[in-house]
Amino acid sequence: MTDIFGVPIVVLLGQLLLGLINGSFYALLSLGLAIIFGMLNVINFAHGAFYMLGGFAAWLLLSALGIGYWETLIAAPLMVGALGAVVERLFLKRLYRVDHLYSLLLTFGIALMLEGLFRHVYGAAGKPYPIPPSLTGGINLGFMFLPMYRAWVIVASLAVCIATWLAIERTKLGAYLRAATENPGLVQAFGINVPFMLTATYAFCVGLAGFAGALAAPLYQVSPGMGSSVIIVVFAVVVIGGMGSIGGAIVTALALGIIEGLTKTFYPAASSIAVFVVMVLVILIRPSGLFSREA
């Protein structure tokens, strides 16, 4: 068997795959964070909680109503997105005029409420979610065994990320969005309903987090803490990439997932801090972030 620095290549590829999967979840989440920040000027601390909600929605739909995986993959994001729309209308909307810090604190409070509520009702332990029958098994690539579901997660999340990116950069609706980011007053004067657009943007991005949660359910167990453990890493990703560019957010997220996977192979003890170390280096070398436009 071939080794690289004493690590069997199969192990290395396995960890790279895991890193790529983590990276695609980071991408789905940091993409949403970046769009919300761009449009609403809000750092959505509740993003992790909405990701957790997506996982729980999938688990509840299956265990309580017997609704299968594919329907869930549509239903969970819609449910989470609808809740997001309510949050934006009831709370966030009133905070656009005050300091950004308050919307950060508000979403932090909402994250605590959601996590606390689910921990209280369902306990801290993880809930298993079976891999859908059509995606069980795997393909033997000759040099490694690729489980079907993992391949599907990478393909699905990348497809959603690229579709979102294209929708914002290439369509008319996306042009309105970008224009409203630059100058909301002027866009409103052209007869476009900007407040509605803000609500829709928030709901959509939060729905993306819900989609990521449902996608993650069969891979990791569904638990109330799954959101808060991922959101801080995603924040670091956003600091590294800078929030100026959506494509940049996706690339950074994937790269960091892979770096994390590599650290897990070569120096497991440091794998949980690898992303943060990269963040420190980036702040030292290029303080405004790798893909930032402000630089």
């Binding site: 920040f37 750092i43 950004h100 810090l101 950060l104 801080i232 924040f235 670091a236 956003v238 600091v239 003890a269 949980s272 801090i273 943060f276 170390v277 963040m279 420190v280 702040i283 030292l284 303080p287 405004s288």
Partner: peptide, 28 residues
């Protein structure tokens, strides 16, 4: 020294990430 290089909202995120690094070190 690190976090003051970035303003406002980034400051909050950087301090959070750095503190999480300390947490992981405390675990290990």
């Amino acid at each position: 020294t690190l976090a003051i290089r970035r303003h406002g909202i980034y400051f909050a995120m950087i301090t959070l990430a750095l503190a999480q690094m300390v947490y992981f070190m405390a675990v290990q």
